[in-house]
């Protein structure tokens, strides 16, 4: 029997278990395995390996599920408590943006008047006006950075424990 025939059979034995093979290939393989002891043994060993893998048991640590459920519930509570704070921050951002838009013409007039009194160049006034606009966003950004840093340090602490 040529070596190519065995190579094909061994390839099909693996393929049949991993992704399945066509009916024609399956028929050919069955016929070959019936007459070839080497390939039949290979198929038996492969099936035995898979059977052992499928039936191998790993005992669960005692109380793992209940400990995890407890931790998950605690974390869920933490997240729920944090939600109103986040909501409040977004509402504040929204209100400050709306106020900024609606009062922009008046504020610009105030800046112009200050400019007339102090004789400051227009570019300084424009920059100051821009900065005044950016203040709420800067504060929101700072709050989020602090919050993220706090969360990261809490995660780092948990990982160190691990």
């Amino acid at each position: 029997m040529s070596e190519n025939v065995h190579d094909r059979a061994l390839k099909l034995i693996g393929q049949a278990r991993v992704e399945g093979i066509a009916e024609a290939d399956s028929t050919w393989l069955r016929a070959h395995v019936e007459t070839c002891d080497f390939c039949a043994e290979h198929a038996r060993q492969t099936d035995r390996a898979l059977r052992l893998l499928r039936t191998s048991a790993i005992p669960l640590p005692e109380g793992l599920a209940s400990r995890t459920q407890f931790r998950v519930r605690l974390r869920a509570q933490e997240l729920r408590e944090r939600e109103p704070r986040h909501r409040l921050m977004w509402i504040t951002c929204g209100v400050s943006w709306a106020l900024g838009v609606s009062t922009a013409p008046y504020v610009w007039r105030i800046f112009e008047r200050v400019g007339q009194h102090t004789g400051a160049p227009k570019i300084i006034l424009q920059l100051s006006f821009g900065l005044w606009w950016a203040i709420p966003a800067l504060i929101a950004g700072a709050v989020m950075l602090i919050e993220n840093a706090r969360q990261a340090s809490a995660t780092g602490w948990q990982e160190q424990e691990r």
Partner: peptide, 23 residues
Amino acid sequence: KRDPDLLDRLIEQYQYRLFRYLV
């Protein structure tokens, strides 16, 4: 919705498979 009862059920249901995979 972060439904805690659902999470409890999922932890129970998948505990063995997830632990085995991680091991």
